[in-house]
Every structure is written in C-alpha cells, then in structure tokens.
Computed example of a mutant assay.
Amino acid sequence: MDVDLTNASWRKSSHSGPNGGQCIEVADGFAAVTPVRDSKDPSGPALLFSSIAWQSFVTAVRTGEFDTR
C-alpha cells in the first residue's frame, strides 16, 4: 500500500518524556491505516498498520496485556 505522508501531522504519546528516548509518533487522519515512525528519525521510514490492528495494539497496552511485572 502506498500512502502519501508528506503532509501528515505526527504526534507523540502523552507519556513520552521531554528527554527523547525510545518514542514513536503516530499520524492520525488516514482512513484505513495508522502510520507509525521513530521519533528520533522523522525522515526515516514509517510503518503502516491497519487501523483495526493498531487499535487492538493500543487496547492491549492500555489493559496491561504486555506488562511483565
């Protein structure tokens, strides 16, 4: 799938600290996909996830599915 991200508006998680680190950015406003990129490499490649897959991932994170404690 080819998606034009030239004018994408990227945002970081509200949980990202001001010191950088290992953050991702997500671009909203795309009907079928959710673009995701490394915040430290904004001109690098973006991964495209189906909107359903991305929402499933976010839900799993919020409900602690990946917690190791």
Rank of each mutant, 00 (worst) to 15 (best):
M1S: 07
M1Y: 06
M1I: 08
M1T: 08
M1P: 04
D2W: 02
D2I: 03
V3S: 11
V3G: 06
D4P: 09
D4R: 02
L5A: 06
L5K: 05
L5C: 08
N7H: 10
A8Y: 03
A8R: 04
A8N: 02
S9P: 01
S9F: 07
W10I: 01
K12W: 03
S13Q: 05
S14E: 11
S14A: 07
H15D: 09
G17W: 00
P18V: 04
P18L: 06
P18F: 07
N19M: 09
N19D: 10
G20T: 05
G20R: 13
G20P: 07
G20W: 04
Q22E: 12
Q22C: 10
Q22I: 11
Q22M: 08
C23M: 04
C23F: 01
C23P: 05
I24H: 12
I24T: 00
I24P: 10
E25T: 12
E25V: 13
V26L: 10
V26Q: 00
V26E: 00
A27C: 03
D28P: 04
G29K: 11
G29Q: 15
F30M: 11
A32E: 15
A32N: 12
V33S: 06
V33T: 09
T34E: 12
T34M: 06
P35I: 02
P35L: 03
P35E: 00
V36D: 01
V36R: 08
V36E: 07
V36N: 02
R37P: 12
R37G: 14
R37A: 11
R37W: 03
D38T: 00
S39A: 13
S39P: 07
K40R: 14
K40C: 03
K40H: 02
K40W: 03
D41T: 09
D41F: 07
D41P: 01
P42K: 09
S43Y: 08
G44T: 04
G44D: 15
P45N: 14
P45L: 12
P45R: 15
A46R: 01
A46N: 07
L47P: 08
L47T: 06
L48W: 13
F49R: 05
F49T: 11
F49H: 12
F49A: 14
S50I: 04
S50E: 13
S51V: 05
S51K: 10
S51C: 01
S51R: 15
I52D: 11
I52T: 12
A53K: 14
Q55I: 06
Q55A: 15
S56K: 12
S56Y: 03
F57E: 10
F57M: 06
V58C: 12
V58G: 05
V58D: 06
V58T: 15
T59G: 13
A60F: 03
A60Y: 00
A60C: 05
V61H: 11
V61Y: 09
R62E: 12
R62L: 11
R62P: 00
T63F: 14
G64D: 05
G64L: 09
E65D: 15
E65C: 02
E65T: 09
F66S: 08
D67C: 00
D67M: 02
D67A: 11
T68H: 03
R69K: 06
R69I: 05
